[in-house]
Design a protein around this nucleic acid. Structure first.
Lengths: 151, 151
DNA sequence: TCTGAAACTAAAAATGG
DNA sequence: CCATTTTTAGTTTCAGA
């Protein structure tokens, strides 16, 4: 595991808030030159700590007003492999993330839809027909807050 | 809601894969000049469709080997407000996201910890002591895949 | 209104001390 | 690690479709 000093942690924290900040702007905040800051960031990228930059999209502004979390329990475990399920689920356009978890449900899916009627279509035609899908629980997202996390 | 054409959707899709791409590189892929590409991206930012850029961090490389999803049911609803709970939960460093949902549990939390022993500490000293927290269910994350989503 | 060309500003990458 | 230079990307202006 890579060694991080306080400045590295500060840079990660600052970039986690806004990944579009320039190395020179960050350097000013941490009393570092622009190349020094840039090299630290590149080192974090090469070490794999920073895996890339992700767009934060507003699903509502894109016309997807409904976000639902689905807990999916697999029936016929063994007869249908996890790989078959995963291959099929990642091909559904409305699925934003697939989490394989340990607990009452085997997978947790984040699904977006234009509205509740559209969600019903996704559920009936896409989710319920997944190979091996058994019990499904749905939770509608009311609001969400993303936090910086530890460090 | 903003009008999007096929090029806008293509740009969003390409940036969702990697938000660090330059406007000129994107322009080459969509047969657009660099300024035209840049203006489309700025328009999406100003319309709020693109809310910003986020760092994708590798939690394991940062020493957080355990990710757990917690379903939290509030006890004493009404006596302790949702706001009190939310204020307290967003102050826990190990909490990465707080989702207010409709269903069996009231909130879903994404929590990271260095290992299982560290997670027990977070659970006992941070989560169980939250104002209004009732039943708690935990699901350990085994693996995760993030997908581009619709459009 | 959106485009591309050109000119300009700022940032990133490379280099040498 | 810092200072400097070169290269590349971001930004503004403007004229034309």
């Amino acid at each position: 595991m890579i060694e991080l000093d306080d400045i590295d942690r500060g840079l990660i924290r600052a970039l986690a808030r806004d990944a579009a900040q320039s190395a020179s702007a960050l350097g000013r905040r941490f009393d570092l030159s622009q190349p020094a800051t840039w090299r630290r960031i590149r080192r974090l990228e090469q070490a794999g700590v920073i895996r890339g930059r992700q767009l934060r999209l507003d699903a509502e502004k894109l016309g997807f007003g409904v976000t639902v979390f689905l807990g999916v329990k697999l029936a016929l475990k063994g007869r249908v492999s996890l790989e078959d399920f995963e291959r099929a689920v990642v091909a559904i356009p409305e699925v934003q993330s697939v989490e394989h978890i340990l607990g009452l449900y085997d997978y947790r899916l984040r699904v977006v839809a234009r509205d509740v009627a559209d969600f019903e279509r996704v559920l009936r035609r896409r989710i319920m027909t997944l190979p091996g899908a058994g019990e499904v629980e749905a939770n509608v997202l009311l609001s969400e807050e993303r936090l910086p996390g530890p460090l």
